[in-house]
């Protein structure tokens, strides 16, 4: 299969390893990965902050970049950015009176998958240790990010993939379905409420005794990791893709 990677702006600029891991996993399965060059961002930050006209060129750019290339499916290591591509882009186009863009955005959205969705639903991965050679001999816990869980309805796809990694122990996270408080610019505009939510997430993660908290969105992980680091707690955070990419031969360090 020819798979177009949508790295997402935050992974591209802040967490390039997570995009490399995504490429590694897909190539390991024998697929060809391409990186549509014009891509930048899904525009979610602008849309969620209410800056709709400013979001328009960002969305237009994404649609253009992903309708131009020749590929079977597109994938992003983020539930949130994929939700935006699938759901927010058509809504924005409608709001700004751009029916043609709406149609094009829907076509791109229909071909775009979140990583665990692609692996499970399209590529038939049910056992990461066997099918991907994933090996990660550590105790982790897992936070399901809101947009993946609720907007995309990922259910246990990410968790099941993690549980099937060789050598791993997955501790259940208490109140896992509670938002970590990130919410994009919410963490700036309402930083105190956001911090209060983060506090509880940090406490719950620490209560599991895990060495790290895994998840499917680097933005939430950056938020949770920032809180863990500030509180001086041991656990760090790691993206699902990085754990799946880890093998016996090339173990990803904590």
């Amino acid at each position: 299969m020819r798979i177009a990677l949508f790295a997402t702006c935050i992974v591209d600029a802040m967490y390039p390893e997570t995009a490399k891991s995504t490429v590694k996993i897909l190539e390991r399965l024998g697929h060809e990965v391409i990186f549509p060059a014009g891509q930048a961002c899904c525009g979610q930050m602008h849309i969620n902050s209410g800056y709709m006209p400013e979001a328009l060129p960002v969305v237009e750019n994404h649609v253009k970049a992903f309708e131009r290339s020749d590929y079977d499916v597109a994938v992003a290591p983020s539930g949130s950015c994929v939700s935006s591509v699938k759901h927010q882009h058509p809504v924005l186009a409608k709001r700004l009176g751009k029916p043609e863009l709406k149609e094009r955005a829907e076509a791109v959205g229909a071909k775009t998958y979140e990583l665990s969705q692609l692996l499970t639903d399209v590529l038939g991965i049910t056992n990461a240790a066997e099918q991907l050679g994933s090996y990660f001999p550590h105790t982790i816990t897992y936070h399901p990010s809101c947009h993946g869980m609720r907007t995309l309805g990922l259910e246990d796809r990410q968790l099941n993939l993690l549980k099937s990694v060789g050598g791993i122990t997955v501790e259940e996270l208490p109140e896992a379905d509670q938002c970590c408080g990130f919410g994009g610019t919410f963490s700036l505009k309402n930083s105190e409420v956001s911090s209060a939510m983060l506090d509880d997430k940090v406490k719950n993660i620490c209560s599991t005794g895990a060495s790290l908290c895994a998840g499917g969105d680097v933005s939430c992980l950056m938020h949770i990791g920032g809180g863990l680091s500030r509180s001086g707690q041991r656990p760090g955070t790691m993206h699902l893709a990085d754990i799946l990419a880890s093998t016996r031969e090339m173990e990803v360090a904590l």
Partner: peptide, 13 residues
């Protein structure tokens, strides 16, 4: 209430 990691030296791009 949160730290931010130092950015990497090179983007994925």
């Amino acid at each position: 209430s949160r730290d931010l990691p130092a950015p990497p030296s090179k983007s994925f791009r």
